[in-house]
Amino acid sequence: MTTHQVLEFTLEEEQYCIDIEYVTEVVSRSKNDVTPIPDSPPHVEGEFDLRGETTRVIDPRARLLPDGHEENGVSKDRIIVFDTERTTGGRSGWAVTDVLQILTIDPESVEAVDEEKINGILAREDGRIVWIEPELISTET
């Protein structure tokens, strides 16, 4: 039986996870660190310099909830930075509320859903976690 390690994080009050193999690092964020990009898609907050390399900042809420997304002042204190060889569009990171932990999961215990951005739903005693596909969230289209 194959297991996966996933990084659990929050966007506002909701819990999500992604395969840890996509993640390079998690960094703290300051609002002043991110420079807006003119005429960028709604899910692109801007970019910032991470140790000399430009990193695009994506708001995954805009891709997961395109109809209900609005900037509501919710704190996004962490940026999950992705491995550039595993994601599309160059180096990028997601602005998230918080990063919680790394979990080991059995993919057979994941409830399948009919949505291309979502790998499935993990049920836990304290709620559910949505397992999302980062390549589809980070793309420019």
Results as ranks from 00 to 15, higher is better:
Thr3Tyr: 01
Thr3Trp: 01
Val6Gly: 12
Val6Ser: 07
Val6Phe: 09
Glu8Ala: 08
Leu11Gln: 01
Tyr16Pro: 02
Cys17Trp: 01
Cys17Glu: 05
Cys17Leu: 14
Ile18Ser: 01
Ile20Lys: 00
Ser28Cys: 13
Arg29His: 11
Arg29Met: 15
Asp33Thr: 13
Asp33Ile: 03
Val34Lys: 00
Thr35Met: 05
Asp39Lys: 14
Ser40Ala: 15
His43Leu: 10
Val44Gln: 06
Val44Thr: 10
Gly46Ala: 00
Glu47Thr: 12
Glu47Ile: 11
Glu47Asn: 13
Asp49Phe: 07
Leu50Met: 11
Thr54Ile: 14
Asp59His: 05
Asp59Asn: 15
Leu64Met: 14
Pro66His: 07
Pro66Glu: 03
His69Gln: 07
Glu70Lys: 13
Lys76Tyr: 04
Ile80Asn: 07
Val81Ile: 14
Asp83Met: 05
Thr84Phe: 06
Glu85Phe: 03
Glu85Ile: 02
Thr87Asp: 01
Gly89Asn: 07
Gly89Tyr: 04
Gly90Val: 05
Trp94Lys: 04
Val96His: 06
Val96Thr: 07
Thr97Lys: 09
Thr97Met: 03
Val99Pro: 09
Ile102His: 11
Thr104Ala: 12
Asp106Leu: 10
Glu108Trp: 09
Ser109Ile: 08
Asp114Met: 10
Glu115Pro: 02
Lys117Trp: 02
Ile118Cys: 04
Ile118Leu: 11
Ile118Phe: 11
Ile121Trp: 05
Ala123Asp: 12
Ala123Met: 14
Ala123Ile: 14
Arg124Asn: 06
Glu125His: 11
Glu125Cys: 06
Asp126Cys: 06
Gly127Asn: 05
Ile129Lys: 11
Val130Ile: 13
Trp131Glu: 03
Leu136Ile: 09
Leu136His: 06
Ile137Tyr: 13
Ile137Phe: 13
Ser138Pro: 00
Glu140His: 12
